[in-house]
Write a protein that binds this DNA or RNA. Structure first.
Lengths: 254, 254
DNA sequence: ATAATGCATTGACGTCGATCAAGATGGAGG
DNA sequence: CCTCCATCTTGATCGACGTCAATGCATTAT
């Protein structure tokens, strides 16, 4: 078993949530300045992870939840025969580790897809703080609720949608997630490989490759490597949400 | 649009959590007698739902979460073209409605599979109480964490497993859930139809039917209608968790 | 520059499970 | 008891997607 490269508080520094551009994404609630200050006291930053490094591994004891500051992280569960299933991609402003609260151990591994920095939020401290700050408790519950909701949507997508619908859904999801950070909704760089994307969607890498070609032939997107440009968002939406229906445009993972 | 048959506080009575046999399942934490009493003050029981009645519908405003006392409930999301995807089955002692906290509206509908009674827990009250009782806050967070974890497992099952593996997984899941209520782990009555089960697993009803036949021919189960008897749990586990591996027997939805 | 490595692409082929269609079963109601 | 309707079953067929295998392409190491 590989040595767990746990970096214990080594290069952690006090974090300035109040100045973080991602704060509204991270904790979408109204906390007054004093509350935020208390929060800053417990949030720590760790040494950035290099591509491939683990933030935590499955079965690791649960100590903290994490917010991505920059980069990207994938969470995976491992089956007995050693093949992995990717359960989520986590972009800046998004929280991970919540699935470990119940058992006290991380049920999945979290691995950096590229150079990634995260804020570490020790859970005991957070939980204590939440009893003092009602707004924080509320925020926590909402974040977790949203996670459950997103999982249900993803489940539906994987269970009931065809391969091209799934791809459309996930492309629009990334589009939204980049967009709300103020980046382009139509041109972005995917942090994961085709193989990882296909794994996430429950497809074979070859199928993903063929899909990308078809989408380009149909003028829906252009792609060169990980650089993606959405050329016909309307058509993608039609694929993802059914034909031309403008209602019910809740976006997967948005 | 059908009239929403909301039963507002009509026949609600104060609930005696302290005497409920499902309490440990519902809220698996240590609350002292005084805390439980406070909880009882806010928990209400509603008139039992008849088969097919809705507890809530998608888009309904979120007011409360619910604990199943008896019976069974399915939660479903509706796609644009009107077909439904079942996102979960909820048995006695299990909580539903958590996915609505974030948006303030229920993202899915909840419908009784048979005559079902539930405890209603108004969320505002619960949230307030949680700020007063740390153990309750902790419990809430754990329940939600577990929900996220289960969703990830289910996602993995649907995305990566073959039809027979999925059936084995879900049968063992029900076995556990009946077992922990003190009922038989090997003989039980499924509350849902074959069609609903197949929908949940992302399969066609015909496939489900064939699977049941094959499982019976192979001596894994016997089934007559909704009555199921697991004849060879070991073999089912092999199917569900990989060949003969005794480790890692985390059970889906257990 | 060349080799080596890892990921992406492309094609050929097979299979699992969906779909279509037709009975069988069984429960609810008269 | 019989009828009626929904659900379940069974068979035949088809297609989407996985698998296998070969090749291309890019990046890094030699």
């Amino acid at each position: 078993m590989a040595a767990k490269q746990r970096v214990v508080n080594l290069s952690t520094i006090r974090q300035a949530c109040s100045e973080c551009s991602l704060f509204q994404l991270c904790l979408p609630v109204t906390l007054d300045a004093e509350d935020v200050e208390q929060l800053e006291d417990i949030v720590q930053r760790r040494r950035p992870l290099r591509r491939g490094e683990y933030l935590y591994r499955a079965e690791d004891p649960f100590r903290a939840i994490y917010a991505v500051r920059a980069g990207a992280i994938k969470t995976t569960v491992l089956s007995i025969n050693g093949e992995e299933q990717i359960t989520g991609f986590h972009l800046p402003g998004e929280i991970l580790g919540l699935d470990a609260i119940n058992s006290g151990r991380h049920p999945c591994s979290a691995q950096a897809l590229e150079t990634t920095s995260v804020c570490e939020i020790p859970f005991d401290n957070l939980e204590y703080l939440a009893t003092k700050i009602p707004g924080l408790q509320q925020s926590l519950l909402r974040i977790m609720s949203k996670e459950i909701f997103k999982d249900h949507e993803l489940l539906y997508a994987v269970a009931k949608r065809s391969a091209d619908e799934r791809l459309a859904i996930v492309l629009l999801s990334f589009s939204n997630r980049f967009g709300r950070r103020g980046l382009s909704r139509t041109r972005f760089r995917l942090p994961m490989s085709r193989a990882e994307l296909s794994n996430y969607l429950g497809l074979a890498p070859e199928t993903m490759s063929r899909l990308f070609r078809r989408f380009q032939e149909q003028g829906l997107i252009t792609a060169s490597g990980k650089e993606i440009a959405l050329q016909d968002i309307g058509a993608l939406r039609d694929l993802a949400y059914g034909y031309g229906c403008e209602a019910n445009q809740r976006h997967l993972r948005s």
